[in-house]
């Protein structure tokens, strides 16, 4: 049975419509008009138990709205969802004890009190047996290097420390499903790496299903073999991360070092110049023509060294979301 299965999930928000100006503000006092804004439209996907999936999209694409429906915070306008065998928005206790939603910019820790107090509170809320609680806390404190942070009031912690504590307190009950919304937001590179290692470790150790959104492509590249891309609330792509590149990157990248400076004008016939520094250049070449162009380069230029690479995933996804949606290829 899949951990998550959604079909035709749709959510529209009703927002008050207001034209600019004082007169219109006064008018809207008397009669307010609403407009339905589609946030998610006819979304379908299914995720197997133990999968680690990246959920990507530009700002406003509908990622968070989807996560909120999956965690039972929002009722969809139409469509169905089955999460761990439950309909999330019925908010059954048995369901809530098995998942966790972590939002990078939200905190559930009690601000004025030390983090360990919220840990204890969650023990009570999730009814975790003492022995399991102690073992889990010990393990998490070790893995996330939290020992020094536990007895300090949360408001005195650094963002990185707080985020680690946040993650730890969210998985005290060892959820089978983890929904992570921007888990590395605002963290420095070292801390990002630690969080990522931890997510991977958690996924492996407990066969937990993890769905994660991030604008940090390093998160996605390092963690998620599979990605789901959405745009304007619609599914754009669902499949392996590698294939995103093949499907959506029409170019490969040739990096070349030269023995002597070459003319950019001549280089331009090989491919689009992405970078040029006299004796070094990065060129974008249409996928199908890589071999003849590389041969041309080798024959007619003083090439010292040459590599052919895929377009970096970061770049591909960035382009995908800066393109008009109509230009993006249909879902696969």
């Amino acid at each position: 049975m899949p951990a998550i299965e959604i079909s035709d999930l749709t959510k529209e928000f009703r927002v008050p419509e207001k034209n600019p100006g004082l007169w219109n503000a006064a008018k809207s006092l008397l009669r307010r008009r609403f407009r339905a804004i589609p946030a998610v439209t006819g979304l379908n996907f299914s995720i197997q138990e133990g999968e680690l999936v990246g959920f990507l999209g530009a700002n406003g694409a509908g990622k968070t709205t989807t996560l909120k429906m999956l965690s039972g915070l929002l009722h969809p306008s139409s469509g169905t969802a089955n999460v761990l065998g439950y309909t999330p928005w019925q908010r059954r206790t048995a369901f809530q004890k098995q998942f966790s939603l972590v939002m990078g910019h939200r905190t559930q820790l009690w601000w004025e009190l030390p983090a360990q107090e919220t840990f204890r509170l969650n023990q009570e809320i999730y009814e975790i047996p003492d022995a399991q609680y102690r073992a889990t806390v010990e393990e998490l404190v070790e893995l996330l290097e939290l020992r020094d942070c536990m007895s300090i009031p949360v408001k005195k912690l650094s963002l990185g420390q707080r985020m680690k504590a946040e993650l730890a307190v969210s998985i005290l009950h060892r959820p089978k499903l983890l929904l992570l919304d921007e888990p590395t937001l605002g963290l420095d590179v070292v801390m990002q790496k630690k969080i990522r290692q931890f997510i991977l470790e958690y996924n492996r150790r407990y066969r937990a299903t993890i769905l994660l959104t991030s604008h940090n492509m390093d998160d996605v590249v390092e963690l998620c073999p599979r990605v789901i891309l959405i745009d304007h609330g619609r599914l754009l792509y669902d499949g392996s991360l590698r294939q995103v590149v093949e499907r959506y990157a029409p170019h490969k990248v040739i990096r070349a070092d030269f023995n002597e400076a070459v003319s950019p004008v001549e280089l331009a016939r090989i491919g689009r110049i992405a970078q040029y520094q006299g004796t070094r250049a990065v060129l974008e070449v249409p996928r199908g023509e890589v071999s003849p162009r590389a041969a041309d380069l080798l024959t007619h230029f003083p090439v010292a060294d040459l590599t052919i690479e895929e377009t970096p995933i970061q770049e591909v996804v960035r382009r995908l979301f800066t393109q008009a949606p109509s230009k993006a290829a249909p879902r696969g």
């Binding site: 998942f99 939603l101 939200r106």
Partner: peptide, 11 residues
């Protein structure tokens, strides 16, 4: 929206 914090927990 902080209400969400409680709505997703068994409390």
């Amino acid at each position: 929206g902080r209400l969400s914090n409680y709505l997703i927990r068994p409390i």
